[in-house]
Simulated scan of single mutants.
Amino acid sequence: MALRIFDTDPDAKPKPRKAKVEYERPVFQFRSGMQVRNEKTRKMDPVSLANWRVLTDDPAIAEGIAELMGGTPDEYDPTKAMHLHVLTESPSVEIVINGSKAIEDKLILWGPGGPVHECDGEFFLSPAEDAGQPCGCPSTLAERKDLAKRRRGPSPSINVTFRLAGLGYELGTGKLIATAWSLAEVIHEVKDALDAVEGEALCRLTLEHVQYTNKAGIDVSFRKPVIEVLGSYSDAIAEER
């Protein structure tokens, strides 16, 4: 499955669809934010984090993550399946991705009971009776972002299956869950770079700090996930040896 948000843009080069591959169940998740209770409003507000937050349901994995990336395992919500998390001290970590098929990217508009619009940017992916039919999304990224901001159109849903490099490899399979347009806009480049590597690829996953002043004179600051493909993981291991 691949996003087709560039297929309708005249400046974009069409990207072929790729078959979905099943991977073992992820035992931990990487997140760039969390919900924090606002004592004034009594509501939960989203907070962007400077360092990676890792969720799991296994105390041993939580301890391993903390040893590799800093932080302390903590039970943040006993009602959740992955009820443990580690607020790490690392904004960047080396990971191992096994080809572009380890990346699932699509656009989803969520409703109260689940997705009400799920597409690849040009065609519906679900429900089954609509799959393959034109989704009706606008052709330009600016229009797509505007509709998504007003919750009238779908937003990126990107899942990346990976392992941690080095000593973290034995902790098992993890998953990055991202909704950033900044990653959606370049995810095809990441896939191309992965396809250029034979076998597993060594990559760097970073929360990059972005800061600027917009046209209205307002200071904007946020962090975006960045995936950099470094090369062959087997070659990197051989060089270390």
Rank of each mutant, 00 (worst) to 15 (best):
E94I: 11
E94G: 11
K101F: 04
K101E: 14
K101D: 08
D105P: 07
K106T: 12
I108A: 10
W110E: 09
W110D: 10
P112V: 00
P112R: 02
P112A: 07
G113R: 14
G114E: 07
V116N: 05
V116Q: 03
E118D: 08
E122H: 10
E122K: 13
F123M: 14
F123C: 08
S126P: 11
A128K: 14
E129T: 11
D130Y: 15
D130K: 15
A131L: 07
A131G: 08
A131C: 10
C135E: 01
G136N: 01
P138G: 02
P138V: 03
A142E: 13
E143Y: 03
R144N: 00
R144I: 12
R144S: 12
R144D: 05
L147G: 10
A148H: 12
A148D: 01
K149P: 03
K149G: 13
R150F: 05
R152M: 06
G153R: 06
P154K: 04
P154Q: 09
P154E: 07
S157E: 08
N159E: 04
F162P: 00
A165L: 04
G168R: 02
G174S: 01
A178F: 09
A184Q: 03
E185F: 01
V186K: 05
V186A: 07
V190Y: 09
V190N: 05
D192P: 08
A193T: 01
D195S: 02
A196C: 09
A196W: 12
V197H: 04
G199Y: 14
T206Y: 10
T206D: 12
E208T: 15
H209A: 15
V210Y: 11
V210K: 13
K215M: 07
K215L: 04
I218G: 10
I218T: 14
F222V: 05
K224P: 06
